[in-house]
């Protein structure tokens, strides 16, 4: 076929709309990571305390958000919550809230693991210096734990970016949703156009995720080099 359809991509507002979809995906992912990251650090720190009821609650939170598929969580917050509580949120806000709670749960596990990995003698030395529990966290534990947690966090970030493709289900115009409307509007006349649309989607997700996973690998390598001399 002489006409492959790539020029449709640049007709009218088509490419601009794709970029807007890219912007939505990026915005949701970044805000989610910021809120979920802070939430995860706090919860992760709380999970190292020896308080039974608190552990049960946090464990329950983690397991619920890990076991229930993210798309189900999205539907619950988008469709069920407004009916129960008369709380009306836009699709994007719903996505950020849901993803942040999910990210917080996953992040708390990463942070908890990293905190536990800090050698016990570090804590004992801190206690010997007379630091209280909060000071131990602030000056001894977190500075040593966060570098350990970083590669896992960056991997989580790429997972968040890929999970934003679910936004299509709750009427948010993200990359995938824009792409599908473009395919549907043009593929009748130019069936090959779909190829270009999915190609652009691939490139956009690649641009978002590839640098992150490269960075995660580099950090992990540096850390291993440092700790092993």
């Amino acid at each position: 076929m002489a006409h492959s359809g790539i020029d449709i991509l640049f007709q009218g507002q088509n490419f601009h709309r794709f970029l807007q979809g890219f912007g939505v995906t990026l915005r949701v992912a970044v805000i989610t990571l910021l809120i979920g990251g802070v939430l995860g650090i706090v919860l992760g720190a709380l999970r190292t305390l020896h308080n039974r009821p608190l552990q049960v609650i946090l464990r329950l939170y983690l397991e619920i958000f890990r076991i229930v598929p993210t798309v189900v969580l999205l539907f619950v917050v988008y469709y069920i919550v407004p009916q129960l509580f008369h709380l009306d949120m836009s699709g994007e806000l719903v996505a950020i809230v849901t993803f942040a709670l999910w990210t917080g749960a996953e992040m708390s596990d990463i942070v908890r693991g990293a905190l536990i990995a800090v050698p016990q003698h570090q804590v004992e030395s801190a206690q010997a210096l007379g630091l209280n529990r909060l000071q131990q966290l602030r000056y001894v534990l977190l500075p040593q734990a966060l570098p350990v947690a970083l590669p896992g966090t960056i991997n989580l970030a790429t997972r968040i970016i890929k999970t934003t493709s679910l936004l299509l289900m709750i009427s948010v115009m993200d990359i995938v949703n824009v792409g599908q409307t473009l395919v549907e509007a043009n593929s009748h006349q130019h069936p090959a156009f779909a190829f270009w649309v999915y190609g652009i989607m691939f490139i956009m997700y690649y641009i978002l995720c590839a640098p992150l996973s490269w960075w995660a690998k580099r950090i992990e390598k540096q850390r291993l080099e440092r700790s092993n001399g």
Binding site: I8, Q11, G12, Q13, N14, H16, R17, N177, Q180, T181, L182, V183, E184, A185, N186, H188
Partner: peptide, 14 residues
């Protein structure tokens, strides 16, 4: 709908 030509879809000017 946003993906159902010709009932509800998005044209090239968005």
């Amino acid at each position: 709908f946003g993906d159902l030509q010709p009932y509800g879809w998005i044209n090239k000017s968005g």
